[in-house]
Simulated scan of single mutants.
Amino acid sequence: MITSRSNMKPTYQDVTGISKSAQKCASATSSSNVLQNSLPYEFDFTSYKVSDCISVLSLDIHANCDSLYSSQVDQSLVCLVLLAGSPVTLHAPGRPAVLLEHKHPVIINFADGDSLELWLKAGTRCTLGGISLCPDVMKSQPWLTFADELAPLTNFCAQPHHLMKLPPSSRLVNLANETLSREYDGFLKQIYLESYVLSFVVEIIHLMQRTASQSAGPNSKHLGKAIAAREILDSDIANPPTARELSQRVGVNITTLRIHFRMAFHKSISAYVHDQRLARARDMLRTSTMPIADVSYSVGYTNAAAFATAYRKHFGYPPSQEVIAFQGDVSTGER
């Protein structure tokens, strides 16, 4: 059961030093193994400003009970990698939830006022490391604009609300761990962190190039068809057309549509429908007072139990926890 939400909102771009926060869990119920008045989590968050546009990040967090860590983020490009501990579910508005796994960096293009959320299970302890780049970094760091090899990063920066999970990288983990263990001061620290950021960015671009080479994108004609198909699905996600009907509506054969839809959006048509239904259900659970069963029906599920199972599998917790976290009450019927 999610019992608390942090009201501490460190800003990744501007906060320096270490922020510490601990809140009390809500009173435990008879069915909960969470002790009353225990602390939901404790964390150390550090953001060291290397320059006006670049920060080095670290977060060490320990959850004493199931809880939600939430941080407000300025407009920035953030890359995080799990250095140690248990995998955690990461979510940012407008993007699918992603499991943050050891060595797998996640890169996120945040808009101003976005938030980053980590869903933590009781006993979870994890350490994250990474960097944050503000929108003006291309102007302040000329080396980011000179080479064609840097195009994957610059193109990513041009896509609002974009998120990408990259292949595993022991090099990034080693870089981040070494940086956290170094204790340089003054100008030496500044030089060291600048070299760290440069190495980190180079490795990120290398991973993005590997990802792109492993899956060539669709040509512009087929990309347009894939986008048109997605728009049709989004217009009625609860009652989407079949793949064959969809291909007929956009004017391309079903095999071609399936291939280029996956190339464009990195998932099958059915997986896209599944993920969008659950994403919309999540938004409704957070912002409306509809019963959970009604929410499940409104996004296309005909069975509330099947919806609850799919929701738990996708997000790592049941829909009732979403309601508790954001509205403080729950019912599968009326609420």
Rank of each mutant, 00 (worst) to 15 (best):
L90C: 09
L120V: 02
L35M: 11
I269N: 04
I232G: 02
S6V: 04
H91K: 08
P93F: 02
A63P: 00
I254L: 12
P218F: 01
F265D: 06
V81D: 01
L144V: 05
S296C: 03
L68T: 00
V330Q: 12
V250H: 03
Q36S: 15
L172S: 02
D148T: 09
L82T: 07
R5G: 09
A176R: 01
I61H: 01
R182W: 00
A111G: 04
H266W: 01
T179L: 12
N219D: 15
I191K: 06
T256K: 00
N37T: 05
A308G: 13
L90T: 12
E117M: 08
A306L: 08
V15S: 14
M263K: 15
R335K: 14
P240I: 01
A310C: 10
Q276V: 09
D60H: 12
S215D: 08
A293S: 11
P10L: 09
D234E: 13
F200D: 05
A304H: 09
V273Y: 04
I237D: 05
M138L: 14
S32V: 01
Q72E: 11
T179F: 00
F110W: 05
L150E: 05
L188Q: 14
V202M: 06
P168I: 10
R5D: 01
A111L: 12
I232M: 00
P241A: 02
L278G: 08
T289F: 10
P241N: 00
R282P: 04
R249I: 00
Q190H: 10
H62M: 05
V81N: 10
R210A: 09
S76N: 12
S71P: 06
T145S: 15
E117H: 12
V295S: 11
E334A: 11
Q190R: 11
L193D: 02
A212K: 07
T89G: 04
G186N: 11
D60V: 09
I61K: 02
C134S: 15
I191R: 06
A306Q: 13
S215H: 09
L163Q: 14
Q159G: 00
T89K: 06
T29M: 10
F315V: 01
L128F: 15
M284V: 02
Y184K: 10
T154W: 04
A264E: 08
R5Q: 10
E178K: 10
S6W: 05
Q13V: 10
D44Y: 14
L77V: 08
L133F: 03
M263D: 07
L90K: 06
I131K: 09
Y192I: 04
D136N: 14
E183R: 14
M290G: 01
N109F: 00
L188K: 15
K24H: 09
M284Y: 07
V330C: 15
P218I: 02
P168A: 15
P241V: 00
A26D: 11
V137H: 08
L223M: 11
Y69N: 04
F43E: 09
E334W: 03
L133M: 13
T289I: 03
S215M: 11
Y192R: 06
D234N: 13
P152D: 06
F326H: 13
N174H: 12
T211D: 11
H162E: 13
L128H: 00
T211E: 12
L57E: 03
G17D: 08
L80R: 14
S58C: 01
E203I: 00
M8K: 09
K225F: 03
R280P: 04
S51T: 15
K225C: 07
S19L: 13
